[in-house]
Amino acid sequence: MRKYLFIFKSELMSTLQYVFNIAAGFIGCFILLFIFLNLWQYIYSNPSEIINGYTMNQMIWYIIITEILWGISSGKKICVKISNDIKGGNIAYNLNKPYNYILYSLFSHLGSAFVKAIIYTILGMIVGFMFLGSFPNLNILSIIAVILTSVLSTIISALLVSFIGLFSFIIEDSTPFYWLYSKLILIVGTIFPIEYFPSIIQPILKLSPVYVVCYGPAKLFVDFSLNNFITVFISQIIYIGIGFGLCTLLYKKGVKNLNVNGG
């Protein structure tokens, strides 16, 4: 485990050099949040109105959290890296190294995500307070719950994106799959809570990654309940187990073929 922490740390250190660039990357996020502030202010005819169980402030905070999560884990880089490793044959060099390739990629991704998380969270909270003038009702327990589920959410999206990257073992170009995943998260998961969708598809969405990656932490932030937390947490653990299992399986299978083909 120590070596993975070391990988985490060194990636974190090298990301620290780009603090300014990362903060600048938040600008795009800010523009979108600003538009949504205007949009929801328009749609909610008065601030006390409740639509699908959410007040206007809750809707804005919901998007702030999902945008932060997306900003932290937009894992195109990890997908591209894994797929390049496979296509370029770099993966063969990793075979005789004493570490687990999946864990290695995951921890190096988390190292850079950590720096982003701090910057994005600070900026996100400032923007939210600027827009709305108040925070949702929070207490120590709910804050811990949000942080914990956010970390798990980041790990899940990293695993899912890695899984897509590992698809390069099977098909030439796995980008279309990444594209599908990112659309699912961005359009279905980031903008609206699950309650906004027709009741027929809500159960499907609750089983999809949208629930554990976006909805879970954001919902807990705007409207905490212990029951909800337990459901989200358990779902996330299951997702991590399945995600890691699938990655390992695909990796082992891919590497085996690699050996047969002689790299």
Partner: peptide
Amino acid sequence: DIIVDTGNSLMTSLATYPDGIFK
């Protein structure tokens, strides 16, 4: 380049939302 990115993303982001929502 940060100004360029901001300017361009402002143009594309605003482009797809009705102007009536802005005040």
